[in-house]
Simulated assay, not measured.
Amino acid sequence: MEIPIKIVQVSKSDLTEIEALQASSFPAEKQQPSHILEESIRKSADTFLLAGDENQLLGYVLGSPHPHNPQCLEIRSLVIKADHQRQGLGTLLLAALKDVAVELDYKAIRLKSPEELLSYFEMNGFIDEETSLYATNQGFSMIWFNLFF
């Protein structure tokens, strides 16, 4: 019997689990400091979504209003616990964030993708924002459009 995955909005009480997941997923220099995570929880709780089973946090997606276009969300983090990757959790979180974007009347979701994840994000409905695929030092700029906007 499989344990169902729940996707919920973040709360301040989730901070310790988020930090632990981040610590197991990234080297120290790529982890977001606690105060930044706390601020994200406070400012972006409706677009900071967690995936977990009844026992533990398995992943999260953090979206926030795009700094140059407040009608768009920007994915700042998508993290899945290493032993749960390639099982569809990231796709579930992206789908949940798309639902939230539609509910909150955002017209699009943007993200920066490294080249090795381009096909993953394309599979999830994102397209390259540029007409040509020129990589920048931050990766490729990808976008998903809200068809109901």
Rank of each mutant, 00 (worst) to 15 (best):
G52T: 06
G52D: 05
G52C: 05
G52Y: 01
D53V: 08
D53K: 11
E54Q: 15
E54S: 15
E54C: 12
N55R: 15
N55A: 14
N55V: 09
N55M: 08
N55F: 14
N55H: 15
N55I: 02
N55Y: 14
Q56Y: 10
Q56P: 02
L57V: 11
L57S: 10
L58C: 11
G59K: 12
G59Q: 10
G59T: 11
G59F: 09
G59I: 09
Y60D: 04
Y60F: 15
Y60R: 13
Y60C: 09
Y60V: 11
V61L: 05
V61Y: 05
L62E: 04
L62A: 11
L62P: 10
G63P: 05
G63I: 10
G63E: 08
G63W: 01
S64V: 12
S64C: 14
P65E: 01
P65N: 03
H66I: 02
H66C: 12
H66M: 06
H66L: 10
P67G: 04
P67R: 11
P67V: 03
P67D: 00
P67M: 12
H68P: 05
H68Q: 14
N69H: 02
N69R: 02
N69I: 01
Q71G: 02
Q71H: 14
Q71R: 14
C72S: 14
C72D: 01
C72A: 14
C72M: 08
C72T: 01
L73E: 02
L73S: 03
L73I: 00
L73Q: 06
E74Y: 02
E74G: 07
E74F: 03
I75V: 15
I75C: 11
R76C: 03
R76S: 13
S77C: 07
S77H: 10
L78P: 05
L78G: 03
L78V: 04
L78H: 02
L78M: 01
V79Q: 01
V79H: 04
V79M: 11
V79G: 02
V79Y: 11
V79D: 05
I80A: 07
I80S: 09
I80T: 10
I80K: 08
K81V: 06
K81I: 07
K81D: 13
K81L: 05
K81F: 01
A82I: 10
A82V: 04
D83P: 02
H84V: 00
H84M: 12
H84A: 12
H84Y: 14
Q85D: 01
Q85R: 15
Q85S: 11
Q85N: 01
Q85H: 09
Q85L: 08
R86T: 07
R86A: 13
R86F: 03
R86D: 05
R86I: 03
Q87S: 10
Q87K: 15
Q87P: 01
G88S: 13
G88Q: 12
G88T: 12
L89P: 03
L89K: 09
G90L: 07
T91M: 08
T91S: 15
T91H: 11
T91G: 12
T91D: 01
L92F: 09
L92V: 00
L92W: 00
L92S: 15
L92D: 08
L93I: 09
L93F: 01
L93E: 05
L93W: 04
L93R: 09
L94E: 00
L94R: 12
A95D: 09
A95R: 14
A96C: 08
A96G: 07
A96Y: 02
A96N: 07
A96S: 15
A96F: 00
L97G: 07
L97C: 10
